[in-house]
Amino acid sequence: MSIIRIKYQKGEQVNFVSHLETMRVFIRALRRTHLKCHYSMGFNPQMHLVFGLPLPVGVSSLAEYADLYFDEDYDIREVISLLQKEIPPGFDVLEGEYLFSKKNIMSDICEAIYEITIESTLTCQQIIEQVHELTIIEIEKTRKKKTKIIDIKPMIIQLSANKNVMTLTCQAGNFGNLHPRIFLQAITQYIDKSVREVSIKRIALFTKRNEKLVTPLDKLVLGEKI
């Protein structure tokens, strides 16, 4: 059995395909490759694959990750090439590496970078300056009839602007996740009412090893063959 971690891109053309639907795209593409994928046991076998941090609907991405489980040992280039051939237009499978570490990719992610294009009255530079001036940014989060108040300021790690595009580096994953639209919601609430989302693109995902930020395909993350 082998596990291959792949990096793929989700273009603007397939923006609106949800995270669950994306998983099905990969499952069906893998079925078309006729590679021996690993299925769970039991009454209703499911193909075993694990995806990284879910991408919100309407957001495109340059860096998404998924772990694919196979019953046989395959050459990585063969897998990438077969998969790229079967994946529908809009998706691109870029590269892959063997995964030896048992660490689950979902729980591993800690940081993300988003490029957010907006329409607004203030310039992005002005908006960012105001964000920096606020000490706390409180947002109401309602989940299953319970409303919590969360301060998202500490989740913002870095902000920069280029014309009408803001680049946001923020916390991501199971231990604190800033949803880019929550960020926009906060800006509309506290800084500029007229802000409207034009497009959002996730450009990177990171995890940490030895206090350093690395991508999920870094050697330190993948581990070594025992």
Partner: peptide, 14 residues
């Protein structure tokens, strides 16, 4: 972006 299930309208399917 403002409607339910926008993927109904995008086409581009395999």
């Amino acid at each position: 972006r403002e409607v339910e299930k926008p993927v109904r309208y995008t086409g581009g399917e395999l």
